[in-house]
């Protein structure tokens, strides 16, 4: 009797998990299909090449213009800026925590950094408006500091917890025997860290960077609040920009259903999706290359 009921439970759980798996998978597929469907409806009206190569975005004007190059470059500018700040800072912190910090300091710093990830993005955006913006305005002599650099700084703050935590786990995961081997042939701590430990931890560190990039490209609220929201081709970090995500968030609320403008926003979303996908694939490729050298 008991055995039979156990068998039933077993069967039931197997089915349950199967259903979960298929459920999640079909949601993803349905979502992608919806994106593609709506984007296709847009590209009947506007040529894909015009969409990505023109800088004029004026969906409500007459005639309307759907060039999203300015947004694309704005997104890249903010994301690249954020990574320029976050990658060295993040990996440096991770290396410090993993290799140099004493146990006490580590136990204090680690929760503090993880807490950073829990701050809502609206709060960080607010910080950008009231703290960083006046600071940047003072530095540059402009009327306000709501620009690409502001967004990049905020995004780097948001990406840091992920980058630090994941990179530190990767560095911590390198067996002590690697380091001993390096010390054993007369290497210093610095040499060991930069030439043995970090290369060995490279797949994990790359994964950390990828997660950070993903965050920087996909983040909406913070950049919407802090970057000035001007749709124009930016000439540098001190120009106001409007990213792809911010555009979708701002315009989706007021766009009439099933108009070209409506479809255009879906096309922006799908382009965003493709960018993240490509970056992830590049990341995976390098992770794979490093993995070959990994010793198990």
């Amino acid at each position: 009797m008991k055995l039979v009921s156990r068998k039933h439970t077993e069967k039931f759980t197997a089915r349950f998990f199967k259903a979960c798996g298929f459920g999640a998978g079909s949601v993803l597929i349905a979502l992608s299909l919806m994106l593609v469907w709506n984007a296709a409806a847009f590209f009947i009206h506007v040529k894909p090449y015009d969409f990505v190569s023109k800088t004029q975005w004026d969906p409500t004007g007459s005639p309307s213009a759907y060039g999203m190059l300015s947004m694309l470059i704005s997104t890249m500018l903010v994301a690249v800026g954020a990574m320029l700040i976050a990658i060295p800072l993040g990996i440096g912190t991770a290396a410090f925590l993993a290799e140099y910090a004493g146990r006490k300091l580590k136990n204090m710093l680690k929760p503090a950094i993880e807490m950073l990830a829990a701050i809502p993005s609206v709060a960080i955006g607010f910080l950008g408006i009231v703290v960083i913006s006046p600071g940047l305005a003072g530095l540059t002599g402009r009327s306000n500091g709501l620009n690409a650099l502001n967004g990049a700084i905020l995004l780097s703050v948001m990406a840091l917890p992920t980058i630090i935590t994941v990179a530190q786990d990767a560095i911590d995961g390198i067996p002590i025997s690697y380091k001993e081997a390096s010390f054993g042939i007369g290497a210093s701590r610095w040499q060991t860290l930069t030439q043995v430990t970090i290369p060995a931890a490279a797949p994990g560190i790359l994964a950390a960077i990828m997660l950070g990039v993903g965050r920087a490209i996909g983040e909406t609220m913070t950049v919407l609040m802090a970057t000035g929201n001007a749709i124009a081709l930016p000439h540098g970090f001190f120009d106001a920009v409007r990213t792809m995500t911010a555009t979708i968030a701002i315009e989706m609320g007021e766009v009439p259903f099933q108009t070209t403008h409506y479809y255009a926003l879906f096309s922006v979303a799908i382009l965003l999706f493709i960018i993240t996908l490509v970056i992830n694939m590049i990341g995976e490729y390098f992770v794979g290359r490093f993995k070959k050298f990994e010793i198990r």
């Binding site: 690697y178 042939i185 010793i295």
Partner: peptide
Amino acid sequence: GMVFQKANPFAKSIYENINYGLKIN
């Protein structure tokens, strides 16, 4: 020099494994 209980080559090529020690010294 020291040789450890568990073989612990670096996550590098065969050549680089030896070259590293020469380089840092």
